[in-house]
């Protein structure tokens, strides 16, 4: 049986030491396979982001297990888990979180620099990935000189530069107009998805549902249902 990209079983997360505690994620099971794009949708406060953080090795669950490629990540030490994220997971944050004082290429190169790769080699790699996302000619500009869609592409280039097996997108279209958002997700589907990669996207944006292989719905901290995307329905 093929190893799943992500497999979470019975994960719970609550905030606060004593009652009344906020139970953000309640006994959730989640799985994602290589070669698919999985959306997690649901209203604000439903626990999507908390769940995403737990399955990506950022937030420790109070109970339950999370395996990535068959490895139980929450048994690792903090440094080992950081290394694991650095090599295995690419993050695209909602607000991009690009350094305004670095050039676009330097921002993209950061994961390789953290992997202790040579500076010039990292920048060269960053320029190649900027070409992949169509921003080769923006390499020397600071991110603040770019449009929202372009900054999103820079964040994607930063996420893919370490060739991660798993990519995590947090509301990738939230700051973009409809057409740019669709273009971005279409680009992700066409250029980044492969048999060896799994992509998880948390979103509110129903306009991009067509690009998902599976859509999971969360409400009130629970996984309430599975929606087939229009793409799969066709």
């Amino acid at each position: 049986m093929a190893v799943r990209a992500i497999e979470a079983v019975g994960i719970n997360k609550w905030f606060g030491e004593s009652e009344p505690r906020t139970h953000a994620v309640k006994d959730v099971n989640f799985e994602a396979n290589f070669g698919e794009i999985v959306y997690v949708v649901g209203p604000s406060g439903s626990g999507k982001t908390t769940m995403l953080s737990m399955i990506s090795g950022i937030l420790r669950p109070n109970s339950g297990t999370v395996k990535i490629e068959g490895t139980e990540i929450w048994n690792m030490s903090a440094d080992a888990l950081a290394d694991f994220r650095l090599h295995k997971i690419g993050f695209v944050f909602q607000d991009y979180h690009l350094f305004p004082r670095l050039t676009t290429a330097e921002n993209v190169a950061i994961p390789l620099v953290l992997q202790r790769r040579d500076w010039d080699e990292s920048l060269a790699e960053a320029r190649r990935d900027l070409e992949v996302v169509g921003l080769r000619d923006r390499a020397q500009l600071p991110p603040v000189k770019l449009s929202g869609g372009e900054q999103q592409r820079v964040a994607i280039a930063r996420a893919i530069i370490s060739r991660p097996d798993i990519m995590i997108f947090d509301e990738p279209t939230a700051s973009l107009d409809g057409e740019t958002g669709r273009n971005i997700v279409q680009f992700v589907r066409e250029h980044l998805l492969s048999d060896k990669r799994c992509i998880v996207i948390v979103t509110h944006d129903s306009r991009i549902y067509e690009f998902a292989d599976r859509i999971l719905r969360m409400e009130d901290g629970r996984m309430t249902g599975v929606e087939r995307s229009q793409l799969n329905a066709q």
């Binding site: 903090a78 290394d83 090599h87 993050f91 944050f93 979180h97 690009l98 950061i110 994961p111 953290l114």
Partner: peptide, 13 residues
């Protein structure tokens, strides 16, 4: 926030 993002990406404390 960017330091936090670096932590998420895999930078150690």
């Amino acid at each position: 926030d960017r330091f936090g993002a670096l932590k998420a990406i895999g930078a150690k404390s």
